[in-house]
Computed example of a mutant assay.
Amino acid sequence: MLRDYQPVDAEAIRRVALAAFAQFEQDFSDWPLFTTNVAKMPELAKTGEIIVAEDSDQIVGAVAYIGPQAPKPAFFDPAWPVIRMLVVDPAARGKGIGRQLTEECLRRAERDQAPVIALHTTPIMTVALPMYLRMGFARVREAPDILGVSYAVYVKSLG
């Protein structure tokens, strides 16, 4: 079940985000700094909408939808809505939760009458990146590396 984030969800979101990224510990040059930033995921609710996935009353995933014109990193066009921090608890993977969360972001972009939606990701994310490509996202340019890991910007046309 998907629903909008509530402030009471902050700790569960942090836990899921940290668990979701744990497999990448060897990839980032400064893991403590990276996890400090991952743990700030609930703060994205200040500039966007966090969507929460629940299974049996447990939060098992989340994503932030940052709408058109909302503040976002400079490597994105300011007019684009952006998908940020898609996370799924490792114990809940393989159930389509990531796809459901991404599809909800697409619905919100359409609600906002955006012609495209964007995200940035990295080839080390061997489940997420192929899912985005299957959903119609295409790589448009490099994004700045994050602690030694290369990233790129992907965009999907809507409508």
Results as ranks from 00 to 15, higher is better:
41 M>R: 09
104 E>I: 05
149 V>W: 04
21 F>H: 14
51 I>N: 01
74 A>G: 07
71 P>I: 09
68 P>L: 06
92 A>C: 09
77 D>Y: 06
102 T>I: 14
112 D>Q: 12
35 T>N: 15
149 V>S: 03
41 M>I: 08
77 D>W: 00
95 K>G: 01
100 Q>P: 06
7 P>W: 14
151 Y>M: 04
101 L>W: 04
107 R>V: 10
97 I>W: 09
20 A>Y: 03
82 V>R: 10
30 D>C: 15
90 P>G: 14
81 P>K: 09
17 A>Y: 13
62 A>L: 01
155 V>E: 12
141 R>A: 15
88 V>A: 15
9 D>M: 08
115 P>E: 15
110 E>Y: 00
116 V>K: 15
18 L>M: 15
79 A>W: 02
67 G>L: 03
120 H>M: 03
32 P>W: 11
11 E>F: 01
83 I>H: 01
84 R>S: 09
106 L>V: 14
73 P>G: 05
43 E>H: 03
75 F>V: 12
82 V>F: 14
64 A>M: 02
132 Y>G: 08
4 D>Q: 06
30 D>E: 13
92 A>Y: 08
147 L>F: 14
115 P>F: 05
60 V>D: 00
117 I>R: 00
106 L>T: 07
106 L>H: 06
41 M>C: 07
38 V>T: 13
7 P>T: 12
111 R>E: 04
38 V>L: 15
63 V>S: 03
154 Y>N: 05
22 A>E: 12
126 T>M: 06
19 A>R: 15
100 Q>R: 13
114 A>E: 15
54 E>G: 01
67 G>S: 12
99 R>V: 07
53 A>R: 10
70 A>N: 10
77 D>C: 02
30 D>T: 13
118 A>P: 13
94 G>H: 01
79 A>C: 06
111 R>M: 06
109 A>N: 14
36 T>I: 14
32 P>L: 11
99 R>Y: 00
81 P>N: 08
133 L>H: 00
153 V>I: 11
80 W>C: 06
80 W>Q: 07
65 Y>R: 14
155 V>T: 12
15 R>H: 03
58 Q>D: 01
158 L>P: 10
43 E>W: 01
99 R>N: 02
16 V>D: 14
52 V>D: 01
132 Y>A: 02
121 T>M: 05
27 D>C: 07
11 E>R: 05
146 I>F: 11
138 A>M: 08
137 F>S: 05
71 P>K: 07
16 V>Y: 12
68 P>W: 00
128 A>G: 09
11 E>V: 02
66 I>M: 09
74 A>E: 14
76 F>E: 12
121 T>S: 12
148 G>Q: 04
5 Y>S: 09
154 Y>A: 02
153 V>E: 06
51 I>H: 07
152 A>V: 00
89 D>G: 07
7 P>V: 13
67 G>F: 05
16 V>N: 11
129 L>A: 02
67 G>P: 13
122 T>G: 13
29 S>G: 11
21 F>M: 14
45 A>Y: 10
63 V>L: 07
93 R>F: 11
112 D>F: 11
141 R>D: 13
119 L>E: 04
110 E>F: 00
100 Q>N: 12
15 R>A: 05
37 N>I: 08
